[in-house]
Simulated assay, not measured.
Amino acid sequence: MKIAIIGATGGTGRKVMERALELGHEVVAVARRPEVITPAERLSTRQGDVFDASGMAKAIAGTDVVISCIGPTSNFSPGNVMSKGNLNALAANFSPGTVMSEGIPNILKACQRAGVKRLVMQSGIGLSDGKELSAGNRWVIGINRRIFSKAIKDKAIAEHAVQRSDLDWVIVRPAGLNNAAATLNYTAGPAARIAPFRPLSFADCADCLVRAAASEPAWVRKIVNVGQ
């Protein structure tokens, strides 16, 4: 399968790229600065900006499925829990801009123009209404939604746009993410009961996103939770 990854230089996007290649897929990595991506077999890079729908259509042309890993700019860098990258990630959730609410509709338009029928969107468990979670986790999710209300609103607009589309979409809502090693031992599925604040590695989230793109037909047009 030929998979386009939008946001391929981000924390999850890099891991999605690596996992898709490990599984033998052909990958098109789409980023504003594709020159920073390390070359690899079965990997091609294309420049693309989610605020430019026509340019994005060219970037994903000829692919079978798109995985969107875009999100608020955080300048994430690996390190300990108090790293500058993590602090920037926190700040990005307070002031997320419109990268999701504007970027995802542009990706949808690009898919239509390019004839791509399948889209996987990385979102976040904070968008859950909590019905599938424990009572304690519902309460914490509610607090989180109020604290990060701007980021939740931005992602909600994006999710609604995807759900209204005629694509074979999957929305993946991971728990909080960290740089731990991949385990491939996680819970994922529509309305899966997970612990939203028990960390999930970027690598395990990436594996779930690739599954959603390539090997989980029962997830089509569903919202999938992934975590521990």
Rank of each mutant, 00 (worst) to 15 (best):
G13Q: 05
G13K: 12
K15Q: 15
K15P: 14
V16R: 02
V16F: 06
M17R: 14
E18I: 15
E18C: 14
R19Y: 15
A20K: 08
L21N: 00
L21W: 08
E22F: 06
E22G: 03
E22D: 01
L23I: 06
L23C: 11
G24S: 07
G24V: 06
G24T: 05
G24K: 08
H25P: 10
H25T: 08
H25E: 02
H25L: 00
E26H: 06
V27Q: 05
V27L: 08
V27H: 04
V27G: 05
V28A: 08
A29G: 05
A29D: 10
V30C: 01
A31C: 03
A31H: 01
R32V: 09
R32N: 02
R32M: 10
R32F: 05
R33L: 08
R33H: 10
P34G: 08
P34Q: 01
E35A: 05
E35Q: 10
E35D: 03
E35N: 10
V36H: 04
V36E: 04
V36R: 07
I37A: 00
I37Q: 01
I37P: 11
T38D: 03
T38H: 01
P39A: 07
E41I: 06
E41M: 10
E41Q: 08
E41V: 09
R42E: 00
R42C: 08
R42D: 11
L43Y: 08
L43G: 03
S44L: 05
S44Q: 15
T45N: 13
T45L: 11
R46W: 12
R46V: 01
R46K: 13
Q47S: 15
Q47K: 14
D49A: 12
D49G: 06
D49C: 11
D49K: 13
D49Y: 03
V50M: 12
V50L: 07
D52E: 11
D52K: 08
D52G: 11
A53L: 11
A53I: 06
S54Q: 14
S54I: 11
G55W: 06
G55R: 07
G55T: 02
M56S: 02
M56D: 09
M56L: 14
A57G: 05
A57Q: 10
K58Y: 01
A59P: 02
I60M: 00
I60W: 01
G62D: 00
G62M: 02
G62A: 00
T63D: 03
T63H: 02
T63N: 10
T63P: 01
D64A: 06
D64Q: 12
D64Y: 10
D64N: 11
V65K: 06
V65F: 00
V65R: 01
V65W: 04
V65N: 00
V66K: 09
V66A: 07
V66M: 02
I67F: 05
I67H: 10
I67R: 06
I67M: 00
I67C: 06
S68W: 09
S68Q: 07
S68T: 07
C69A: 06
C69E: 05
C69Q: 04
C69T: 09
I70N: 03
I70S: 03
P72R: 07
P72D: 11
P72I: 08
P72F: 02
P72G: 02
P72K: 01
P72E: 07
T73K: 14
T73D: 15
T73E: 15
T73W: 04
T73N: 14
S74A: 15
S74G: 14
F76S: 03
F76A: 02
S77D: 14
S77A: 14
S77I: 12
S77Q: 14
P78Y: 13
P78D: 12
N80Q: 10
N80A: 03
